[in-house]
Amino acid sequence: MKPGECPELWNIEHREEVFDIARSYVEAGSDMIETNSFGGSRFKLRHYGLDDRTRELNRAAAEISREACGCERIVLGSVGPTGIILMTGEVDAGELYEAFGEQAAALTEGGADAIVVETMSDLEEASLAIRAARECTGLDVICTMTFEKTVDGQYRTMMGVSPFEMVPVLKEAGACVVGSNCGNGTEGMIAILKEIRRADPDVPVLIQGNAGLPEYREGKTVFNEKPEVTASFVPDLVKFGASIIGGCCGTTPQHISLIGRELRRLRE
């Protein structure tokens, strides 16, 4: 895919490639796979003049993942942020709610088993997305936010939300699983996880880290956290209470495969 292309359009125009990617993660041992619909809200698609195809593109995204994993595994319909900051007044909460509901409904039509609202940084937007997804689909909704380490070693989202503050708000909005995705690598997820657990010992927690920070080498960006390194954090993630472990940016099927192997080893 070239920069500037709409990733969700690939669900129609490069269906085979998207399918192969989904399939490669199923083969690596994933129990749950997501859909290629992170930027599939009407507000994001509008940048490409594709907002009138919101339903079609999201439906196709879910159909691809469904076909790739059969009935045995779970398809999580991915819903990302709109890129709009509510407090700027650009759009109102009602419009955002409708857009999230529309996207979640289309993912459900395509065969999603649950919705994952991810990479969120604003509690209000996250809550709207969770409510919309629940009320428009009746499916379970997972929500994960993205934290960065501050200069004094705390974790906060871009909008200043801490993992501790996040938990009750997302639960109140109706999320049945909360957690964290993206960020600066799997290692930082351990501290985030501990803080989530401090807020709530019982809620199921999803952790999906990036394979480190991207580096630019010879005209290409590469993620430098090797699969072995990611897998080495799995025992701690389990120990501190992660319920579901996955991968975000830069994690390959090899990363997932080694995470799975580590989990099996721990179970024995």
Binding site: I85, M87, S121, V151, R156, T157, M158, G160
Partner: peptide, 13 residues
Amino acid sequence: FRENKVFVPQVLM
């Protein structure tokens, strides 16, 4: 903002 004492919402205000 640099020192992470405030975040995006405060800067926007």
